[in-house]
């Protein structure tokens, strides 16, 4: 490979990356732009690219109209609870489904997988009635507790795929040294699949952070509402305060973006197998 074709490839690579990221940044730019505009400017055609004047009031209004601080804490409670539950239980379950040999393992896994195939619209009511019979409607339990029981088949499946790529010899080495499954899980499998665990953490965070239907159905008191429900309120029955809606969306989405920026660095570090080979 000559240096010339090499440089040519680099240029192409950057060109694709820059073009692609422009395309991807566009909706976000639009969000930022619209969040600082009044109603008339937002829908002007041909569109205005820069707000004029900047309507920063849009960012104050959500806080005046809704108890955003309260919503934030509520959301955080649900997110943290779900995150802990999911990370604990899905990693353990995935370990069992990939690294342990037991009778009926793959059949049980296949059955678990079906839980994603029935649309939520028809399981919503039976599930709700179940929680109601436990007297847990209008609490966070229906939103958090399931995470501690498996943490979602999606996550188990994803982790299983990663665990299965790790060489089996690693386990046997631990057994020889007198270790057990718990040692393998904590010392070998978890550290080696850090990137996959991070991915699950990220997805769980985002899904819970943005979940609208769950909190809407299970929570009745406004004092227990979440940010996603708050956001919906700006889309009224008859009218939508678009500028405020956009500003509120931006406020809600920023933590998620910041989190991803921190997160992706750890993803990049990903641990190469070579490190623990010896």
């Amino acid at each position: 490979m000559t240096t010339r074709t090499f440089r040519w490839q680099r240029v192409l690579l950057y060109a694709v990356l820059i073009l692609g990221s422009l395309l991807c940044l566009f909706p976000f730019y639009w969000l930022v732009r619209s969040s600082m505009m009044d109603l008339a400017q937002i829908f002007e055609m041909p569109p205005k690219w820069i707000p004029e004047p900047f309507v920063l009031r849009n960012f104050i209004e959500p806080f005046e109209q809704l108890p955003f601080g309260r919503y934030f804490i509520n959301t955080l409670i649900i997110v943290v609870g779900t995150l802990i539950g999911t990370l604990l239980s899905s990693t353990i379950a995935a370990y069992s489904f990939s690294r342990m040999k037991w009778v009926g393992r793959d059949k049980v896994f296949a059955v678990l997988l079906t839980s994603m195939m029935l649309p939520f619209a028809v399981t919503l009511i039976p599930t709700f009635i179940g929680w109601q019979s436990l007297g847990l409607i209008n609490t966070y339990a229906p939103l958090i507790v399931p995470a501690f029981f498996g943490g979602g088949v999606f996550n188990i499946f994803l982790l299983r795929q990663f665990y299965m790529t790790l060489p089996r010899e690693l386990d046997e080495a631990v057994f020889v040294d007198g270790g057990n499954h718990f040692t393998i899980f904590t010392r070998i499998i978890l550290p080696l699949s850090r990137s996959a665990v991070l991915v699950i953490g990220l997805f769980t965070f985002l899904n819970t952070w943005n979940d609208f239907m769950g909190p809407l159905v299970y929570l009745n008191d406004e004092s227990k509402f979440t940010l996603a429900i708050g956001l919906q309120q700006f889309q009224g029955m008859y009218t939508a305060q678009w500028g405020v809606l956009m500003a509120a969306s931006l406020i809600i989405v920023l933590p998620a973006i910041l989190l991803f920026m921190i997160f992706q660095r750890y993803l990049m570090e990903g641990i190469a197998l070579t490190g623990i080979k010896g």
């Binding site: 009511i125 609208f212 239907m213 809407l216 008191d221 429900i229 889309q235």
Partner: peptide
């Protein structure tokens, strides 16, 4: 009780229960 979205879905569920 303020239901800011999916009004009928929430009410249907509450009726069922």
């Amino acid at each position: 009780m303020h239901i800011p979205g999916d009004y009928v879905t929430k009410l249907t569920t509450m009726f069922a229960a």
